[in-house]
Amino acid sequence: MKTFQERIDDGETIEPKDDMPDRYRQQLIRMMSQHAHSEVVGMLPEGNWITRAPSLRRKMILLSKVQDEAGHGLYLYSATETLGASRQELIDQLLEGKAKYSSIFNYPTLTWADVAVIGWLVDGAAIINQTMLARSSYGPYSRAMVRICKEESFHKKQGYEMVATMADGTPEQQDMIQDAVNRWWWPTLMMFGPHDEDSPNSAELIKWGVKSKTNDELRQSFVDRHVAEAHEVGLEIPDPDMEYNEETGHWEFGEIDWDEFWNVVKGNGPMNKERMKARSEAHENGKWVREAAEEYARKQKLSKEKAS
């Protein structure tokens, strides 16, 4: 019999009923549920603009994108449930403030350009992370990721298309889009998490084949790709230290404001309270609906049993 680590090292996929170390299970539950929460909370900043979208085409694209995010949350909760955690428990953890979600969604969407930039930068960052996770050692996680990546590619594309349209638009549109890039660039870089040396979970997740790249490696590939895309449409990256290194072929960038990062993680971001309030209200207001449906099902089952 192979040990667990040998199975991982041989590139085998771990399935729900397989033996696995408890710590592997716990780390996955933590990581996957965080990911699921992020998708669901992530509906809010963009959802903020659905009713105000400036064309019918943009309205339909945005609505279907935010809807996709609900779907992604659903896939990820389901995948997490295969590890023995119920969705009810996971949602309770979120609403009680015990579980985390991506800090990027604690920033506000102040103008329509934010919607464009979220698609381009935030989804661009998510795709880099998710493409890696599609090869994760845990079967249900990797399969959910494959499905999500397929759907996510349209998200980034529509975002970049909108960025390009605005960057090529009226002076007001150009100002609006540059302002959005200025506000979202650094928080997006923070999405990849702390530096490798400050990321205690990272090494373990790599050892277990959940991740295959470090936070800094992922961040670098994000920067390389998006700096090029920004220049393509004539936008500036708000980093005076940004410089191309001919030797390595990479863009070198300035230091992230880690105080801001930890501050938002601790709940002091501009929108933390509002995001949690919106989720709690949806949950509370939906309670009678969930109960009604379950009660109806119980009654139907009972009357069927009586009839037979």
Partner: peptide, 8 residues
């Protein structure tokens, strides 16, 4: 959108 009674 984002405020429904359950994800589904």
């Amino acid at each position: 959108c984002g405020h429904g009674p359950i994800l589904e």
